[in-house]
Amino acid sequence: MDTVEIVMIGAFALAGVGLYGLLVVRNLIKVVVSLQLLVKGVLLALVAAGKASGQVALGESLALTVVVADTVVAVIGLAVAVQVRRVSGTLDLKKLSNLRG
């Protein structure tokens, strides 16, 4: 198996673990952790796809944009989590939900 294919499979697995965390986890900060893992898988897949298609520089450029966007999403998510904790006293998503049905 080619090295790029191994990296691509690892990227899919990382994205899968991140998606699993998003589906299962109830803590708001761990939701941000899961989102980070999901984006790391996408980052690896971008670079691997760029290498496989012979356009390494384009893959790197897109990956750099993803890194910056991912960091800003983490910052905003953590700021929201801190404010939610301060206002509601909990980070549990089930307890934060006001809708009942």
Binding site: V4, V7, G10, L14, K40, L43, L44, V47, A48, G50, K51, V56, G59, E60, A63, L64, V67
Partner: peptide
């Protein structure tokens, strides 16, 4: 992941 990126040739990233 950063180490894998370096080995793939994406040094800056």
């Amino acid at each position: 992941v950063a180490l894998a990126l370096y080995l793939l040739g994406a040094h800056q990233v």
